[in-house]
Simulated scan of single mutants.
Amino acid sequence: MALSLVSSEASCRVPALFADVKNLIAAESTRHGGVSPAPFASLNLGINTADQPVNVDENRRRFFAAIGASADQLASSYQVHGTEVLYALEAGRYEGYDALITNKPGILVGVTVADCVPILIYDAKQQAVAAIHAGWRGTVGQIVTKTLACMQQQFGTRSIDCFAYIGACIDECSFEVGLEVADQFDPACKRQDETTGKYFVDLKKANAQLLVKFGIPEAQIEISPFSTVINNRDYFSYRAENGNTGRMLAVIGIKNKQIVAGTVI
């Protein structure tokens, strides 16, 4: 499925899976439409980069305005490539979590990425959401499974009610790893080049497997066709840009209910 552009500068994309869900905000940013100079050009949303904070603040203002929200609605964390999950009851900046869940309207949960996999989950029955940051360590640690288990415990989430989006990240042909990393992945999610003997891992496929194994129907899973490396003109890539680059944001949240002319919408 194609993703929808939501601004004239293509500053962010809305997963087609969520595009018609009226009470949901869900989007991932691109690198376009911001004010940051190279090497962070231009919509760098990463707080923990060497970019000027004033640039990041303005970029975040633009991104959230494009999706009809504000930066002070965001719950996020300083990510550590772990598998800890935070139940976010209010917006704010946390530390030590690579996944956030919430069922509180008006709060957006989000993760920053620049090659790692952003995963957004929507429980349509319980009106709960999750944002997950899955690098290779988080993928091997099954952070997707742990996040869904937390949603099940906190909200009564059922897999049949969930819709999941796997966002833009490093592609299989660009993600070369050593044998010690490759050995931790299912054979279906890795490949050894017959000529060079080098190993490559497919993080999108590995995380999609975890979603399906938990019970989410494949028809309710969307996988971005974009690669942070191949499509580096549109996305930041830590590996392609030797670590000196910006960050994208992937966010999701339930909208606050509004009362218009006595009707809740």
Rank of each mutant, 00 (worst) to 15 (best):
V260L: 14
Q220Y: 08
R137C: 06
V251P: 02
A131I: 06
F63S: 01
Y199P: 05
G243A: 10
T30Q: 04
Q209D: 13
G68I: 08
N244I: 09
Y97W: 11
S29P: 07
A250F: 02
P15R: 08
A19V: 11
V14H: 07
Y165A: 11
V21G: 02
L120W: 02
R60F: 05
G33A: 07
E222T: 13
Q209W: 04
I25F: 03
M1I: 10
S8H: 11
N23K: 10
R62H: 05
L100R: 05
V260M: 11
Q126A: 12
L45G: 00
I166D: 00
C189L: 06
K204L: 06
A75I: 04
N232A: 13
F175N: 13
A69M: 08
I25M: 08
V229Y: 14
Q153S: 14
H81L: 14
D183G: 06
Y87D: 11
V264M: 13
V264Q: 14
S224G: 13
R239I: 09
K257I: 08
V181Q: 09
L24I: 12
C12G: 05
S70E: 13
A2F: 11
I119Y: 00
T139I: 09
L3D: 05
T195P: 03
A16G: 15
D57F: 10
T263S: 13
K257T: 13
F40A: 08
Y235C: 00
V140K: 12
E194A: 14
R158L: 14
R247V: 05
G246P: 00
R61D: 01
Y235G: 00
D51G: 08
Q153T: 14
A88Q: 12
V35S: 09
H32V: 02
A206N: 03
V212Y: 03
C12M: 10
R247N: 13
S7T: 12
C150I: 04
V181G: 04
I143T: 04
V144M: 11
A75V: 03
C150N: 10
L17Q: 04
K198C: 13
A2Y: 09
P187F: 02
G138D: 03
L86W: 01
E172D: 11
P118L: 08
V117F: 01
I47A: 11
H133M: 05
A128C: 09
Q73T: 09
Q153M: 12
I216M: 02
K22W: 08
V201R: 00
A10W: 06
Q220E: 09
D57E: 13
I252E: 08
I170G: 01
L86S: 03
H133E: 04
L148P: 01
G106H: 07
G246M: 01
Q152L: 06
I221K: 04
E9T: 12
D98I: 02
I166Q: 01
A19H: 12
